[in-house]
Design a protein around this nucleic acid. Sequence first.
RNA 1: GGCUCCGUGGCUUAAUUGGAUAGAGCACCUGACUACGGAUCAGGAGGUUAAAGGUUCGAGUCCUUUCGGAGUCACCA
Length: 621
Amino acid sequence: MTINEIIQTAVIAAIKELYGETISSEQAAPAVTRKEFEGDFTIVTFPFTRFAKKKPGEIAAELGAHLVKNVPQLDRFNVVQGFLNLVVADSFWTDFLAQIAGNEHFGRLPKNGQKVMIEFCSPNTNKPLHLGHVRNILLGWSCSQICEAAGYEVKKVQVVNDRGIAICKSMLAWQKFAEGATPESTGIKSDHFVGDWYVLFEQKFQEEYRAWQASAAGQRVLGEKRKPEQSDEQFFKDFKNSYFNEHSNLGGEAREMLLRWEAGDPDTKALWQQMNQWVYDGFGATYEALGVSFDRFYYESETYLLGKDIVEQGLASGVFYKKEDGSVWADLTDAKLDHKVVMRSDGTSVYITQDLGTAQMRYKDFGTEKMVYVVADEQNYHFQVLFEILKRLGEPYAAGLHHLSYGMVDLPSGKMKSREGTVVDADDLIAEVIAEAKEASKERGELAELSKENQDDILRKIGLAALKFHIIKVGPQKRMVFDPKESVDLQGQTGPHIQYAYVRIKSVLRKAADLGLEPSAIRPDRMSGQSAIEPQERELIAQLYRLPATVETAAANYDPSEVANYCYDLAKAFHKFFTDLSILKADTEVAKAFRLQLCGAVANALRTGMGLLGIEMPERM
RNA sequence: GGCUCCGUGGCUUAAUUGGAUAGAGCACCUGACUACGGAUCAGGAGGUUAAAGGUUCGAGUCCUUUCGGAGUCACCA
């Protein structure tokens, strides 16, 4: 039982005994006492006035006396207004520290026997990854790490959008203009190479479109279709898709290519495979740079026909209905989700049909009780519909579905738009934060005597810590403004600030070892006698104590920012402790050993917590 | 227009899910090492939590309305 649970059950029992009322565990839950008051946990007694018929302060006093008498872990209490502040005995904290000291797995919960699948990243294969993908990947990755630490068996999967008109554009442009160039021959990273052809296609298409606008044919269409309130410019902007589909030569060629692909034309398939392979190689390098990996890739080219049997089932069971033209719909109006097409009148599937099929397929593959989709909030409606349909179909995993919806990333200059070239490229970004770390490190000169290899490894860890922490510390649902300048900050509420706490500990532990003070030689039984701990020490231990609960709630909420905030708070408490109290020159040998042990435990917790965010800790910096 | 989400000092954000005087960081100002790493710490200034009502012992959090921003409402993905 945790101390929280001990207090909670004691409060319930005490209220029952004192006032004869059975209260909910919610009402008995202790909160963390605010810093300005003495105490570790606080019980709010206002709700008890209803049945106790006494003033909150009196209840708090009675309850406090009762608890301190009956709960050995509690030392004393004080009452401020209706708030009962409980002080946990020092021995409880020192015992706890002795218990976790040296346990590198502290913070990781035992296996719970459940499986969760987390889908994230899911890129298109026609261009390189950008900042939006980075947020997605970091969220997905840290969620998977957190779930694993919370006891789940985790499957990390990705759906690759490897087919469709977009990749055909890259293919066509390469075929027409590349003259056999390859990533190898040009020295361009292979996913960027493919993206370049996509960009070229768009340029050529724009040229063609502009020429057409001035032509007789273009002017004729303008005359026929322009609405009175539209300017010529606005008309052509809105008409772009129709032009692509109905008039454009390049558009026609791209669509023909898609048809050939769907017909299984060998040459087209070969080219498609080549282009995609280039992209995968490039993505792979980016994933590696970010330190993430996947257990399974699903390819849209293999899943886009799925789901038709589900449609049949749904029709049979009355979840779907068929219109006269043959299209199939789900009526979700009673869930305020309107009507939704699940199959076109020509019998082909739409996006959501595929997702229905994919969900079923993945359940068959892994049998996971929970499935999490890390997808931007622009698809909120889509997932509401998807989950609602799966629920109505009676799928066994329907209750465990979750859309981890996150806000899009904006730049200080506004929205990222690939067409306008305002996207921040993932590879550039990674290189930039590492370069920035290098710059800062040069000024400090701490790493000078280390090997080049060692230095590079450290700088990589620092740069990525800055980037990752900057993104993950923000709650997922919040739309965020990404300022590249701030993302490379190394001071304040940042990844490197937390790494620095770890590095300081490592440095002290090295010095301690030189002095013959091996933390491993410190016996827990010797520590538990330690009493009268300093407030800074107490704060640190209490903070350590919260790690498992933090992991648990972060997993339950699928919210990595909770772990990020925890790490920051812990590092902050450590820095305070470190400047206020001397470790190696503590007054007594016991105090020295105690503080060393505390340092070791903090280092472990920091490494574990940051590890859950995909952030590595350097030994020096 | 319907539905959904967001709005917290100049900027970026937190608030243990309804609890105490809204907590941090950046930027600004002032201090702190012949001491274990100053990428640190302490202090100062900066707030009507977009606005107005309501619910109650208690509201940044829940309800209503208004304002502002975003997303979505395809036989696209």
